[in-house]
Simulated assay, not measured.
Amino acid sequence: MNSKRPVTPYGWAIKQRLTEMQLDQRKFCELYGIPPYRLSNLIHGTRKAERYRRQISQLLDLPPS
């Protein structure tokens, strides 16, 4: 699916936190009303998505780098 696009360091941080919280990406998006494609944009660095970046950083307790 998205295997062609590399995962950014911020994307790996998201994935790591979701793993620690025992949530998959789909469930996380459902819980917090985040469009799955926006989460994917942030993981792969394909769009800035600043609003969601701030929200996701807060929810996952990540620096908004």
Rank of each mutant, 00 (worst) to 15 (best):
M1K: 05
N2T: 11
S3Q: 13
S3V: 12
R5T: 07
R5L: 15
R5I: 12
P6N: 01
V7M: 09
G11M: 00
G11W: 00
W12T: 15
W12Q: 15
K15L: 14
Q16A: 12
R17G: 11
L18T: 13
L18P: 10
T19D: 15
T19A: 15
E20N: 08
E20G: 09
Q22W: 01
L23S: 02
L23M: 04
D24F: 03
D24H: 02
D24L: 02
Q25S: 07
Q25P: 00
Q25T: 13
Q25W: 01
R26H: 13
R26P: 05
R26V: 15
R26E: 14
K27V: 15
Y32A: 08
G33N: 00
I34Q: 05
I34A: 06
P35R: 01
P36T: 13
P36K: 06
Y37P: 06
R38G: 04
L39Q: 06
S40H: 09
S40A: 08
S40Y: 13
N41V: 09
N41L: 01
N41Q: 02
N41T: 10
L42E: 04
L42F: 02
I43D: 03
H44W: 01
T46E: 10
R47S: 14
R47E: 15
K48C: 09
K48S: 09
A49P: 05
A49Y: 03
E50Q: 14
Y52I: 05
R54Y: 08
R54M: 10
R54F: 06
R54H: 07
Q55N: 13
Q55T: 06
S57V: 05
S57T: 05
S57R: 02
Q58E: 12
Q58V: 12
L59Q: 02
L59T: 03
L60T: 12
D61W: 03
D61G: 06
L62K: 04
P64F: 00
S65N: 11
